[in-house]
Design a binder for these strands. Structure first.
Length: 325
DNA sequence: ATCCAGCGGG
DNA sequence: CCCGCTGGAT
């Protein structure tokens, strides 16, 4: 899909050239900012991946897609997103669901980070109780929803209402770092991203720049194959240095507490309640109540899950059982 | 072994 | 305000 040749730039209106020339703190930005903007938007509009959430402007549907996308490869998000909306089509429906069901769904679809299912459920409740069932439209208000930080707030505002500011996620950082040699500094990224975005065009712009980071300027750059529209301005393309901002080292998942938390939640999604030792035996073969990874260890995990509000411990007369909350 | 990123809370 | 936690699939 090299989309070949130049796609004659120059779209009609240059108009308001004005602007204050250089972006503060980013002497790196080309002076012809409008050309840079147009090139990216034209590139995006000529060809891009089709995701179902790019065809809706429903803030609830978009919020669900954003939360899922934060943790999971996009191809896998598609079916989970469709199933989720099938089950809970509106914020009101989700707010009325049992949280345990939402968490069980999350685990069942291997979406990871079960906390975010809880947040999403809670956010839906906020929309119902604090906003009368209608999503707020500005990033500042969206940020008040549980689990919605600056990134998600701008993404939802942009894609649902076209009212966002420039989104800055790791993809965008990588693009700016390479293309315009922006220093690896959050404030710098924010400033440049914000000045680069065409005012009032957050919907198409954020889609476009994230698409660029996804298909042309990923960890492994594919400038020519993807027909990157910024090659003529790109610092990395000209110097051949495609370094990207630091990637934090990842602790291994195998054997981690995360792995066992995940197993606990998954099991509790299948059996609605389980006794502690039974749970232990099912999540690790070498479980022995008094052993190295025994009841003490398991209690620690379960207590943390309880603190996170994902799980509840119930004392029966003779034993303790655990269930999803 | 490597990839996916942003958030709440301490 | 910075820190470290979070669940997998491939």
């Amino acid at each position: 899909m090299t989309d070949s040749d130049g796609a004659g730039d120059r779209a009609g209106g240059e108009s308001d050239g004005s602007e204050d020339d250089r972006v503060e703190g980013a002497p790196e930005l080309p002076a012809d900012r409008d050309a840079v903007r147009d090139a990216l938007v034209d590139w995006y509009e000529a060809d891009h991946r089709e995701f179902p959430w790019r065809r809706t402007e429903d803030p609830y549907e978009i919020l669900v897609s954003e939360v899922m996308s934060q943790q999971t490869q996009l191809d896998r998000v598609v079916s989970a997103w469709e199933d989720f909306l099938d089950e809970w089509p509106t914020a009101a429906a989700l707010a009325g669901a049992d949280r345990a069901d939402v968490v069980a769904f999350w685990s069942d679809h291997s979406l990871g980070y079960n906390n975010r299912a809880k947040y999403l459920h809670e956010a839906a409740g906020q929309v119902e109780s604090e906003y009368g069932g209608t999503f707020p439209t500005e990033p500042d208000e969206l940020s008040e929803l549980m689990g919605v930080g600056p990134y998600t707030a701008n993404a939802v505002a942009s894609f649902a209402f076209n009212t966002g500011d420039a989104v800055v996620d790791t993809n965008v950082k990588r693009v700016l770092y390479r293309a315009f040699d922006v220093p690896d500094d959050d404030d710098a990224f924010e400033r440049v991203a914000s000045r680069l975005m065409p005012p009032g065009e957050s919907r198409v712009w954020n889609n476009a720049i994230m698409e660029l980071g996804g298909v042309a300027c990923g960890k492994k750059p594919r400038c020519d194959e993807a027909g990157c529209p910024w090659r003529e301005w790109c610092h990395a393309y000209q110097t051949g240095d495609f370094t990207a901002p630091d990637v934090p080292e990842q602790p291994s998942f195998e054997g981690s507490r995360r792995q066992f938390r995940g197993r606990i939640v998954r099991l509790l999604g299948e059996h609605d309640e389980m006794e502690l030792d039974a749970l232990g035996h099912r999540i690790r073969v070498d479980y022995a109540p008094d052993g190295e990874h025994g009841r003490e260890w398991l209690r620690g995990l379960v207590d943390d899950l309880a603190d996170d509000g994902l799980v509840r411990r119930e004392a029966r007369s003779d034993r303790t059982v655990v269930r999803l909350r």
